[in-house]
Computed example of a mutant assay.
Amino acid sequence: MFPLITPQELHDELHSNPDAIRLVDASYSLSPNGQPPEYMFLKGRIGNAVFFDIDDVADQNNPLPHMAPTPEQFSRQVGEMGISNHHKVVVYDQTGIIMAASRAWWMFRLFGHENVVVLNGGLPAWLSAGYGLNTDMPVAPTPENFTAIFNDRLYATMDQVEVAAENRNATIIDARPNARYLGLAPEPRPNMNAGHIPTSHSVPASLLIDSGTGGLLAREKLAALFAPLNLLPESPVITSCGSGVTACVDALALSVLGFDRVAVYDGSWSEWGQVTINKPFVKNSMAQ
């Protein structure tokens, strides 16, 4: 299904069939006023949205940040949010689309739930369209049964990325800022190499965002940004970033363009770039 929904479309669906929809606030970054997203969620949300914390719905035994949980954990936590396999899930975030509605969208699909869309432009777009917020204290949802089925076609491991880099059997796309891709800017985490995965291409997630709306660019503009990669609809793609969040923005944009063979490298540079792991990397176009 098409992965985006507009504020008008969401407003209409909430009025015509509200019980069929589950709203999810997957905000991750601080609000413009510096408040944590959980606090802003309590202050106001769309309808009866639930809060989806990508650090909580994650593998707590993995030292890497917010790695995907097991299907069993995802089933339990999503069910506790009142979401079943029969619901249409609409994900949004408080700052637009990049932190981290796209990540939650990918996670639902990773665990077999294709009936999920992202509110294009997120909460700002909803408010700009003239729609209001629910400012009552959230009510605990009635638990539902959710059965997760892991879709390994959407998930890439470090070994699979290494094979793709060596054999070029998939196009690797790096969603980090170009300066980090080139190794010209320091990594935010300690003990990390600076540079990028060999043979990977830079398509920063920030370039895919319309600065005016906070949503994805129009389809023709997205197509122009990916055009240099000469991708075909059947082309296998792996997206990567710093820790698997903005890689999902690139995956979402590719889904808008009709590419469905897109996996996300969950560990991304937080795994590959570790000095102690010592994987090959390219800096300033020179292999290291």
Rank of each mutant, 00 (worst) to 15 (best):
E9N: 01
L10A: 10
S16P: 03
S16D: 13
L23Q: 05
D25L: 14
Y28W: 13
L42P: 07
I46D: 01
N48P: 04
F51N: 09
N61M: 12
Q73L: 12
S75L: 11
S75T: 12
E80I: 12
E80D: 11
H86M: 01
H86N: 08
H87E: 03
K88V: 14
Y92G: 03
G96C: 07
G96N: 00
A101P: 02
R103V: 13
F108R: 02
N115H: 12
V116G: 03
V117E: 10
N120G: 04
L123V: 02
P124R: 07
P124Y: 06
A129D: 11
D136G: 06
V139P: 10
V139W: 04
T142R: 13
A148F: 12
F150P: 05
D152V: 00
R153L: 00
A164I: 06
A165Q: 07
R176H: 00
P186Q: 13
G195L: 00
T199H: 07
V203D: 06
P204W: 02
D210W: 00
S211D: 14
G214H: 05
G215K: 00
L217Q: 12
K221F: 03
L222Q: 01
L225R: 10
L225V: 07
L229W: 06
P233T: 09
S235T: 10
C241F: 04
C241G: 14
S243L: 10
V245N: 05
V245D: 14
V249R: 09
A251K: 02
L252Y: 11
S255I: 00
L257S: 12
G258L: 04
A263H: 04
E271T: 00
N278Y: 07
P280M: 08
K283V: 05
Q288G: 11
